Simulated assay, not measured.
Amino acid sequence: MPTVFRYDGFRFFFYSNEGDPREPVHVHVSKGDGEAKFWIGPNVSVARSAGFDARTLRRIAAIVAFHSQEIEKA
């Protein structure tokens, strides 16, 4: 599970061999007991989430949007 970056205690990562066929570009995010999966394009959206409230998900989505190019390159 390569880490793309860390921000404010959140870990942004991906699974190197996920899905057959491959899924669209996305990133997983974890912190404490929370974990979520975000689709990157064309708009950032939550694919699934457990342990994060709506406010935190909006915050993470903004971070993902800001770093979307970095995530796609990884």
Rank of each mutant, 00 (worst) to 15 (best):
residue 1 M to R: 10
residue 2 P to Q: 08
residue 2 P to F: 10
residue 3 T to N: 01
residue 3 T to M: 03
residue 6 R to C: 12
residue 6 R to V: 07
residue 8 D to E: 15
residue 8 D to M: 12
residue 8 D to G: 00
residue 8 D to Y: 11
residue 10 F to I: 10
residue 11 R to W: 11
residue 11 R to E: 13
residue 13 F to Y: 13
residue 14 F to A: 06
residue 14 F to M: 13
residue 15 Y to P: 00
residue 18 E to K: 02
residue 19 G to H: 00
residue 21 P to C: 13
residue 26 H to W: 00
residue 27 V to F: 06
residue 27 V to W: 01
residue 27 V to R: 04
residue 29 V to Q: 08
residue 31 K to Y: 01
residue 31 K to F: 06
residue 31 K to D: 11
residue 34 G to T: 09
residue 34 G to H: 02
residue 34 G to V: 00
residue 34 G to F: 00
residue 34 G to A: 15
residue 36 A to R: 02
residue 36 A to W: 11
residue 36 A to N: 02
residue 37 K to C: 15
residue 37 K to Y: 07
residue 39 W to P: 03
residue 39 W to Q: 03
residue 40 I to Q: 05
residue 41 G to T: 11
residue 42 P to N: 05
residue 42 P to M: 06
residue 43 N to Q: 10
residue 48 R to P: 02
residue 48 R to A: 15
residue 48 R to D: 08
residue 51 G to D: 05
residue 53 D to G: 08
residue 55 R to A: 15
residue 58 R to M: 12
residue 58 R to N: 07
residue 58 R to E: 05
residue 58 R to Q: 12
residue 58 R to D: 12
residue 59 R to L: 04
residue 60 I to V: 10
residue 61 A to C: 11
residue 61 A to P: 04
residue 61 A to S: 15
residue 61 A to W: 07
residue 62 A to F: 08
residue 63 I to G: 05
residue 64 V to Q: 02
residue 65 A to S: 10
residue 66 F to Q: 07
residue 67 H to Q: 04
residue 67 H to V: 02
residue 68 S to L: 07
residue 70 E to C: 10
residue 74 A to T: 07
residue 74 A to L: 05
